[in-house]
Simulated scan of single mutants.
Amino acid sequence: MEPAIDNMPEVIEELLLYKDFITSKPYAFFGHSLGSRISYALACELHTLGLPLPSKVFASASRAPHCTSNKKYLHDLPHDAFIAKLRDLNGTPKEVLDNAELMELLIPLLRADFKIADTYVAEQHALPTPIHVFHGVEDEILDEHILAWQALTAQPCTYKYFDGGHFFIHQYGEEMINIINQQLT
């Protein structure tokens, strides 16, 4: 029943409540879409605080956080248009979208997430942590916004491209896990 968080600073503030737990053992970050930008923002804040950093950041299906989105904002679409866009994105199960009562509970959360995704632009800060980017070749993210992740690490940035759109992760999840495991060993 709490209001949904709709801005990156507040998301990071909440996550920092767990900074001692997060940094207590060697770790890596994986984020898909907005989660990639949250992972980067949290790693930047941990770096600023002088805390242990992730051994690697895995960014999936996301423009580099310092790039301005080239897409029309979704968070402020009228209700029916917002639901239609969720259907088009093909990331929310049809059973959820068709359940009006459940959607009434989820819409404020989804709008808040989309507001962050639509509006957040990070300051460019090159982390000492390597970044590995996963990208679906049919996703609507500009190539220059994918390649721009390199500017956010002092290490070489690596890239893996998959067939598919924004939710290529559903088809290639096992392969992605294998790549992550290989890079972490």
Score class of each variant (00 low, 15 high):
residue 128 P to F: 04
residue 121 V to R: 03
residue 110 L to R: 10
residue 104 E to I: 04
residue 99 N to D: 12
residue 120 Y to M: 01
residue 87 R to G: 00
residue 127 L to S: 12
residue 82 F to I: 06
residue 89 L to P: 07
residue 128 P to N: 10
residue 95 E to L: 11
residue 94 K to W: 02
residue 133 V to F: 01
residue 86 L to P: 01
residue 131 I to S: 03
residue 109 L to W: 03
residue 99 N to W: 05
residue 90 N to A: 15
residue 102 L to K: 01
residue 87 R to K: 14
residue 125 H to V: 04
residue 96 V to F: 05
residue 92 T to V: 02
residue 86 L to C: 14
residue 95 E to F: 13
residue 111 R to H: 08
residue 118 D to R: 09
residue 105 L to E: 13
residue 113 D to H: 06
residue 124 Q to S: 14
residue 111 R to N: 10
residue 88 D to E: 06
residue 92 T to D: 00
residue 94 K to V: 03
residue 101 E to N: 03
residue 118 D to A: 14
residue 111 R to F: 04
residue 132 H to K: 08
residue 129 T to P: 00
residue 112 A to Y: 11
residue 110 L to Y: 15
residue 128 P to H: 09
residue 114 F to T: 12
residue 128 P to T: 07
residue 134 F to M: 00
residue 97 L to H: 02
residue 125 H to S: 03
residue 127 L to R: 09
residue 86 L to G: 11
residue 122 A to M: 13
residue 88 D to Q: 10
residue 125 H to Q: 03
residue 101 E to Q: 04
residue 85 K to W: 02
residue 97 L to S: 02
residue 129 T to A: 04
residue 115 K to T: 15
residue 125 H to E: 05
residue 125 H to W: 00
residue 108 P to T: 09
residue 90 N to P: 07
residue 105 L to M: 15
residue 129 T to V: 13
residue 111 R to K: 14
residue 94 K to Y: 02
residue 85 K to G: 00
residue 105 L to F: 15
residue 118 D to F: 13
residue 117 A to W: 00
residue 128 P to W: 12
residue 127 L to T: 06
residue 121 V to M: 03
residue 118 D to S: 13
residue 82 F to H: 08
residue 131 I to Q: 02
residue 133 V to Y: 00
residue 93 P to G: 10
residue 106 L to Y: 13
residue 125 H to G: 02
residue 120 Y to K: 02
residue 109 L to V: 03
residue 100 A to Y: 08
residue 124 Q to I: 11
residue 89 L to S: 06
residue 93 P to W: 08
residue 103 M to Y: 08
residue 126 A to Y: 12
residue 104 E to K: 09
residue 114 F to G: 12
residue 113 D to Q: 11
residue 130 P to S: 02
residue 110 L to G: 12
residue 126 A to V: 14
residue 107 I to S: 04
residue 118 D to N: 11
residue 83 I to Q: 12
residue 111 R to W: 05
residue 87 R to E: 09
residue 113 D to I: 09
residue 132 H to W: 06
residue 107 I to F: 07
residue 123 E to W: 01
residue 131 I to D: 05
residue 133 V to R: 00
residue 88 D to G: 10
residue 115 K to V: 14
residue 110 L to H: 08
residue 96 V to C: 05
residue 131 I to W: 00
residue 132 H to M: 05
residue 110 L to A: 15
residue 91 G to N: 08
residue 116 I to Q: 10
residue 84 A to R: 02
residue 82 F to W: 06
residue 98 D to H: 05
residue 104 E to S: 10
residue 100 A to S: 12
residue 117 A to D: 11
residue 109 L to H: 01
residue 98 D to C: 01
residue 110 L to M: 15
residue 90 N to C: 09
residue 104 E to Q: 06
residue 83 I to K: 09
residue 97 L to A: 04
residue 102 L to G: 00
residue 130 P to C: 02
residue 105 L to T: 15
residue 123 E to Q: 05
residue 129 T to Y: 04
residue 90 N to T: 09
residue 84 A to Y: 04
